[in-house]
């Protein structure tokens, strides 16, 4: 399968075409708890991670929800 280039927190990454956000969490070994993904400036609800497929040039913001106050 061909590779696509995406940006995660301003860093370029190459992933296979058809990679979902769920796949990405596995590729990057990310703990899901408290994790928030935004695709092109819009937060993707966790229930949609497995069906949200990445495309060439997508910009991803990946960060932890924080609860401190």
């Amino acid at each position: 399968m061909s590779d696509i280039t995406i940006k995660i927190n301003q860093q370029f990454h190459q992933v296979s075409a058809g990679t979902s956000i769920t796949d990405l969490t596995k590729l990057l070994s990310i703990a899901i708890t408290g994790c928030v993904f935004a695709l092109n400036q819009s937060v993707v609800p966790r229930s949609a991670w497995s069906t949200t497929l990445l495309s060439e040039g997508d910009q991803i913001s990946l960060f932890q929800a924080i609860a401190g106050g």
Partner: peptide, 30 residues
């Protein structure tokens, strides 16, 4: 919320089609 060098803020208007905090953070533990 804030911790370390980071902060987050969001106002929810609670309209029927609007999200809630749980849509953003569906966790009971962090």
């Amino acid at each position: 919320s804030a911790i370390g060098w980071k902060g987050q803020v969001i106002a929810f208007d609670q309209l029927p089609l609007s999200p809630c905090y749980h849509c953003l953070v569906p966790d009971s533990e962090l």
